[in-house]
């Protein structure tokens, strides 16, 4: 088994799948990162993803237009993100708990609409792999990195863009200020509410896209509760990544690579020496272990703390 394991097919297979699988985590976690940098934890990512997944699949089924499907999922994500902003910013609700409410709402709504409007599911043809010219022809490297569908490329391209927005633009500066010292930002004339609204809403949009990426770019089909925990893991990955886009990306990659790895272990381990359950635990244990023994960053000081003008 061991010799088989270090074959080229297996290693490229793990790398390729790891990158592909990271896509929904990356979309959702990058969005959530912006929300958290502005001081709001949105635990409802999973619920928004589910509604996004349903919307994407339904629109793709009805129109066969994948970009329209993605757009509609993003719009639905924006609406749910706006709701979450209102709950967190205006109503100053306890964020851990309102997120659980949002999750339940999205879980129920996506199933309900599926039953009401579709009832059964038939595979769609999702985004197809695009081989990048020249780069895609490099042996091994090309196969691993440059033969994915468009959403995979977009997800990874968003990482440097997010880093640039956060660290190099005035808007990013405002976000960081609002997440650390909202009173100070407020006194300098930055609207804490507006910044948080934009970040949480952006997070909602990304969660909607992340959800839609499942039927449109990875699975081609819809099933009730199909995210089964991805949204929660995405929230955890923001903590893992120390609130930086690169860190979040590394977290998503680590988690997905270990997941791809454990599936290969199962395939190659014919006699089931390692119980599949332990293989399945690997990604979770690895994530905790790496964080426990790695470098850590402090969380945004105002995380989960509602801001009210004049109360400080």
């Amino acid at each position: 088994m061991l010799s088989e394991f270090f074959s080229l097919t297996v290693l490229t297979g793990i790398a390729y799948s790891g990158i592909r699988l990271a896509t929904p985590y990356l979309f959702a976690a990058l969005g959530e990162m912006f929300a958290q940098r502005s001081g709001v934890v949105n635990l409802g990512v999973e619920g928004i993803m589910l509604v996004g997944a349903f919307t994407g699949f339904a629109v793709a089924t009805w129109t066969s237009n994948l970009w329209l499907a993605l757009f509609c999922a993003a719009v639905v994500g924006i609406i749910m993100g706006l709701a979450m902003s209102y709950i967190s910013v205006n109503m100053q609700a306890e964020q851990g708990i309102s997120g659980i409410g949002m999750h339940l709402f999205g879980l129920g709504l996506s199933s309900l609409l599926f039953k009401k409007w579709l009832g059964s599911t038939k595979a769609i043809t999702g985004f197809q792999p695009i081989k990048i010219p020249i780069l895609g022809d490099i042996p091994i490297i090309g196969e691993i990195f440059f033969n994915h569908n468009i959403l995979v490329y977009i997800a990874f391209l968003l990482v440097p863009i997010a880093a640039w927005v956060l660290n190099k633009t005035t808007f990013g500066l405002k976000i960081r200020a609002v997440g650390v010292k909202p009173e100070a930002a407020d006194s300098l004339g930055v609207s804490v509410a507006r910044i948080r609204y934009s970040c949480v809403t952006f997070g909602g949009m990304m969660a909607g896209i992340a959800g839609a990426a499942l039927p449109l770019a990875l699975i081609n089909l819809f099933q009730e509760n199909m995210t089964s925990g991805i949204g929660f893991i995405a929230v955890a990955l923001v903590y893992f990544g120390g609130w930086s886009p690169t860190g979040v990306m590394l977290g998503a990659l680590l988690f997905s690579l270990v997941n791809a790895l454990q599936l290969w272990i199962q395939v190659l381990d014919k006699d089931k020496v390692i119980p599949s359950d332990f293989a399945l635990m690997l990604p979770y244990i690895m994530t905790i272990a790496v964080l426990a023994f790695g470098k850590r960053t402090n969380q945004p000081a105002a995380l989960t703390k509602p801001f009210e003008r004049g109360s400080h």
Binding site: G47, I87, M91, Q92, A93, E94, I97, S98, I100, G101, M102, H103, L104, F105, G106, L107, G108, L109, S110, S111, L112, K115, E224
Partner: peptide, 19 residues
């Protein structure tokens, strides 16, 4: 699933009414 929708709304409304 309608029940989940309603329960989700209950949680959101209750947590918001705290303010």
């Amino acid at each position: 699933s309608l029940i989940e929708v309603i329960l989700g709304l209950v949680v959101i409304f209750v947590v918001s009414s705290e303010l």
